[in-house]
């Protein structure tokens, strides 16, 4: 065992893993976190806690992760390279581990232009691949950047993101290979709507043997409505929503679109489950956490394996 986290154990047991997501509130109200998280208890193996996603100021990922631990959920703490330099990042990793956080996800982070602090100075001292290696070196060698020994190794289960729909497409599997070489344990992909393209990506990943060196989780986000589908298609960078999906949402009457979105998500989960190299699903029910049980049950992924 690298970290002994629940998520790691699920993978070790050869089970199909399932993670959820929880975006912390835009303020200090713990109840918001609790309300979102309560729907996830017992339905996922771990929960991603986002780090100021889309550059909007929110409760820290570390803080909200600790709240989840207290509720009996296992967090995957996200950490972006946008807001901290290597001093703060390494220090926060120690702190997070001391609070009981055992999984983390290393990300570049959305540019601050998307958020509510557009005048901020960004950091990007190190990039996501370098961050993976920092956490890996801490765990495996007990050293921080520069080679100093540390008192108490933070043994994190290390995750990262991959976007099969970003350009240049040919470079995407290479970038994944770099993350694997840097020491990543699991990968969560960007939301998948373009299934043929994801299959092509996975084929290349499998041909390179990368699926044997890390656990790949397919990203699924249920569409709540037609406006949301259109928004994802047009406004969110790195997301590819094909016309067929938009047509399918458009094809059902307005009241039934939410149900159609859930049906689609369940189909997508079943589809990715059969793709070689996919070891799990990362279910991002954005501001729709209460629907997670329905989706998980619908996809036949309930109950979750007991591993501890």
């Amino acid at each position: 065992m690298k970290s002994g986290s629940n998520l790691e154990k699920v993978f070790e047991k050869g089970e199909f893993a399932l993670t959820g997501e929880c975006g912390p509130p835009r303020g200090a109200d713990l109840e918001v976190v609790k309300e979102k998280a309560k729907h996830l208890v017992g339905y996922v193996d771990a929960v991603n806690v986002t780090d100021n996603q889309t550059s909007i100021v929110r409760m820290s990922s570390i803080g909200a992760s600790k709240v989840l631990i207290d509720m009996g959920l296992e967090p995957v703490m996200q950490m972006v390279c946008r807001d901290r330099n290597r001093i703060a990042m390494q220090s926060d990793i120690f702190g997070a581990y001391a609070l009981g956080i055992r999984n983390m996800l290393c990300l570049s982070g959305d540019h601050q232009i998307f958020g509510n602090q557009q005048d901020a100075k960004n950091v990007f001292d190190i990039d996501s691949i370098q961050l993976i290696n920092v956490v890996h070196t801490m765990r495996e060698e007990g050293k921080i950047l520069g080679g100093d020994d540390i008192d108490g190794k933070p043994e994190m289960f290390i995750g990262a993101a991959a976007n099969p729909f970003g350009d240049p497409f040919d470079f995407r599997p290479i970038r994944l290979a770099k993350k694997v070489a840097a020491g990543v344990d699991f990968i969560q992909t960007q939301c998948i709507y373009n299934m043929p393209k994801f299959r092509e990506y996975m084929k290349r990943v499998v041909d390179m043997g990368l699926h044997e060196k890390c656990h790949i989780m397919a990203g699924i986000t249920p569409l709540k409505s037609l406006p949301m589908a259109k928004y994802m298609a047009k406004k969110v960078s790195g997301i590819d929503v094909p016309q067929e999906i938009l047509d399918r949402m458009k094809g059902v009457e307005k009241k039934k679109r939410a149900a159609e979105g859930i049906k689609l998500a369940i189909e997508q989960i079943q589809e990715v489950k059969d793709i070689e190299g996919v070891d799990g699903v990362h279910l991002m029910a954005i501001e729709w956490e209460k629907k997670v049980p329905e989706i998980v049950e619908g996809a036949g992924l309930h109950p979750r394996p007991q591993v501890s």
């Binding site: 990039d127 996501s128 691949i129 370098q130 350009d167």
Partner: peptide, 9 residues
């Protein structure tokens, strides 16, 4: 970034 494009390309 020093190791390739982020997901936003």
């Amino acid at each position: 970034l020093l190791n390739g494009p982020c997901g936003g390309s």
